[in-house]
Amino acid sequence: MFIRSERLFLRPAWPEDRDEILARIGHEAVVRNLARVPWPYTAEDAREFVEKPQDHRLPNFLITAPGAGGARIIGACGLSLLDGEVNLGYWITPDEQGRGYATEAARALLSLARALGHGRVVAHHHVDNAASGRVLEKVGFRRTGRVAERFSRGRGYASPSREHEVVFESPADCGGDDSMNRRAA
């Protein structure tokens, strides 16, 4: 499965991506804001990520930025199950942050989630990562009011994490961006 947005191409990870993934995510500042990624991130972790089977209802993508020299990996995003709910997660390598890539990728992934028939998607961010909260709000997530201690493998401890959600009012019609018929629940 592939997604094309205005500036980005989201695609599955391939074995030849391992070294580039390692270089892009291998920053403590990135990994500390993720729940399931260990620090330090190793070549073995990159291999496991690349070899992880894809679930067509919960896909994971590398975020790439096409250019004259080819498409460079700038991050990753995906859907997963967290506490029985569909969860959206993402990361962007530090050199590419602040350019709207996380917002664009998250928006594209939400459109896919809606097309796949998911009625509700949640996302979480550590309260000390306000930038991630702003990305979620830009793409239509609303705070649920829940803040819970969530363990981060990158931090090695649990820290307060704010929950956000998007609830789709109607099923996807694949007819363009109508703000995805989202509402806060």
Rank of each mutant, 00 (worst) to 15 (best):
E104Q: 09
E96G: 00
L58R: 07
T93L: 08
A106N: 04
L58P: 01
L81P: 05
C77G: 09
W91A: 02
L112P: 01
H118L: 04
Y101S: 04
L58W: 03
A71L: 08
R72A: 12
N60C: 03
L82I: 00
S80Q: 12
F61N: 05
G89H: 06
A65S: 12
D55I: 03
G70L: 08
H56I: 12
N87A: 07
V86E: 03
L79Q: 03
H124R: 14
A102V: 10
F61H: 09
A71M: 05
G84K: 14
W91H: 07
I63C: 05
G78F: 04
C77H: 04
N87K: 03
W91G: 01
R120A: 13
A115Y: 00
E96Y: 11
L79A: 03
P59Q: 08
H124Y: 14
L79E: 04
E96M: 10
Y101V: 11
R120M: 00
T64Q: 12
L112V: 10
G70S: 06
R72H: 09
L109M: 15
S111M: 00
G89P: 01
A113Y: 03
H125W: 01
F61L: 06
D95R: 14
I74W: 05
R114V: 01
G67N: 13
L79T: 03
T64L: 10
R114L: 12
R72C: 13
A65V: 13
S80G: 08
L58H: 10
R120S: 09
L116E: 07
R99S: 15
R99D: 10
L58I: 04
R72K: 14
V86F: 00
R57Y: 04
R107E: 09
A76W: 00
A65R: 12
T103W: 00
T93K: 01
P59A: 04
G89D: 01
